[in-house]
Design a protein around this nucleic acid. Structure first.
Lengths: 348, 348
DNA sequence: TTGTACGCGTTATCAA
DNA sequence: TTGATAACGCGTACAA
């Protein structure tokens, strides 16, 4: 008891020190000021009923005076149940990802979870930093990662991870993804149906390989004489990246009549680059996107694209996390896959 | 490799236990299993040097077996310094806000802070819920709020708050904002310079009033015979909302030759609605936006707009939080204001 | 190199 | 209605 008092007096003197940021008040400080026990303070602050209205008011007044706020750590220690998920997003400027994030936030809120967000900017080093932090501060992580499984595991320290847009064959972690093959199939069928035979693709660097592979497979299936030479890499998944890739593709394959974009931003860039070179869209060059951003309705001509339910993707990811946490088997196959849906507008 | 297998098997067997979810392993459990003291476990897990490599390996193996992860609460309790900020965003589908969020995330990361994000969907009830949670789980909150100061304070419980886009005259909290008047002044000058006299405005519901007020003030200053009747409300801050508002405005004021949008999304909606009514943009109707979304470069004609440095807005907000936390006076006036900059494209 | 003992801030249990 | 005491899980002097 005495030692506690001495301790407090020491604190007090530290408090008065001018210029230094002073220590945050604890429940103990409030108790002392109000002349009650810590327990009573706890009751007052947490709105318990077993407390005299008068003392409660006195305690709250003291708390206000000291700017007291309960420590979330001490509270979390004793009250189980606060769940925090980490969300790692590669590019907040691409409207695709905020929409996925919205799905994650929505599902997390429904479960009473919190979400701390990191922007990795498609940088592997930043991915690792994010994991280093989140593995300590979050109960689970979901996000987009380029790093291989082993690298992820190394920075994960056993925290459950749900990968976005990685097929189960490409990772040993739980994942939710997009059925790229189904999407590309619809898209290619649409182009071929319209009479196109000389179809190129604008691939994204560090993008999931399935889209490229599906493109080549579909081209073969339709008997097109299309190979790697018909695929141009875009340096980034943006409109500018699409413009750059398209310029290169048009140089390499001027006979091109249609182009399949890795995503909508790239496709929009392709439209712009094509037009800058004097090619009319869609009359002289058809452009097909992938994502279904609302941006696609706004450009002229409207972008034909494979629409993805991005919010659902986010919600599914949260559901996977929940399964992992419950010790259940994560969803697999089509349950964890979102199927793209062709939306035909004017561009193709 | 072997250890991973063992780990999985352990999970499997734990799964079979009919009792349900078992308690998470603590440092104590690991110590017991490894036959050492908790202290040694701590050293092994935290990579301290004063430990024998052999015992360290044994401890880590035990930790892996039990799927042990240190409690972030217990850790936070003893190791001070983890700062968590709450970020409340009204609409993740509007590209404006992800960009602000990117600025917040960027600045927060630089300081080693984490950010937990909430999507309030411009709903006051959801704002309050967000505050109720964040006031317990975050060390400070920044965000967009429609609720009045008193309401915010009630749900804040003393947590520092930084308001986004509220002038200091409209709140007693710290804030960072946009100099709407300066923006509107540039925009109106541009339109008047181009010969427009019959200028309307598409205002957003629950949007900051300054834009509307500045619009009316500038109209007066330029001697335009423009009043409230020239302002149409958009039911939401989206393209669709802009279309709806524009339709109403054209009904009310068919003689309109230019329109000022509350934001870029609304302006784009206005362009679409105008064209649907057979008005060519910009020849028969000039359209001016506010925000400077990259979307504006993509539409046709390109959107003339008042560009805002959204990332900077986010960074400033974090800086305000830092000042609040340090007990300093928050920035005030122009230091905490972002000034819009006119970007002329084809639409006006 | 390893272990003991204590403190971190809060809530829960039980006794007064 | 109130208060003493014991967890909660972890880090860290300090002692062994």
């Amino acid at each position: 008891m005495l030692s506690v008092l001495a301790d407090d007096q020491q604190r007090e003197s530290g408090l008065g020190r001018p210029g230094g940021a002073r220590r945050r008040a604890t429940i103990h400080d409030v108790a002392k000021l109000a002349g009650v026990s810590r327990q009573t303070v706890s009751r007052a602050v947490n709105d318990k009923c077993e407390i005299d209205p008068g003392t409660k008011e006195r305690v709250l007044e003291a708390a206000r005076l000291l700017d007291y706020r309960p420590s979330r750590f001490a509270r979390g220690l004793v009250r189980k149940g606060t769940v925090t998920a980490g969300l790692v997003i590669p590019d907040l400027m691409n409207p695709f990802f905020p929409e996925v994030a919205a799905g994650v936030l929505e599902a997390a809120e429904l479960r009473g979870w919190q979400v701390v967000v990191w922007d990795s900017r498609t940088d592997e080093a930043r991915e690792r930093e994010a994991l280093d932090v989140l593995s300590h501060q979050a109960d689970a992580v979901v996000g987009y990662f380029r790093s291989p499984d082993d690298e992820l595991a190394r920075h994960l320290g056993g925290v459950p991870l749900v990968l976005l847009e990685r097929g189960p064959q490409h990772t040993r972690f739980a994942a939710v993804g997009i059925d790229a093959a189904a999407g590309v199939e619809q898209g290619m069928a649409h182009l071929v149906r319209a009479g196109h035979r000389r179809i190129g693709m604008l691939d994204g660097v560090h993008g999931p390989a399935p889209r490229r592979q599906a493109f080549l497979a579909e081209a073969r299936r339709h008997g097109l004489s299309v190979d790697d030479g018909w695929i141009a890499m875009c340096p980034e998944h943006s409109v500018a990246g699409g413009e750059e890739g398209m310029a290169r593709l048009l140089d390499a394959r001027p006979e091109l009549t249609a182009v399949f974009g890795f995503n909508d931003l790239i496709a929009v860039g392709a439209m712009r680059a094509a037009r800058r070179r004097g090619r009319r869209v869609p009359e002289e060059l058809a452009v097909l996107g992938f994502d279904g951003l609302s941006l696609g309705e706004l450009v002229d001509p409207g972008l034909t694209t494979l629409h993805i339910d991005k919010r659902r993707l986010g919600r599914l990811a949260v559901e996977q996390v929940a399964r992992l946490r419950a010790g259940e088997e994560p969803m697999n196959g089509t349950d964890a896959w979102v199927i793209p849906e062709l939306v035909v507008r004017a561009s193709a």
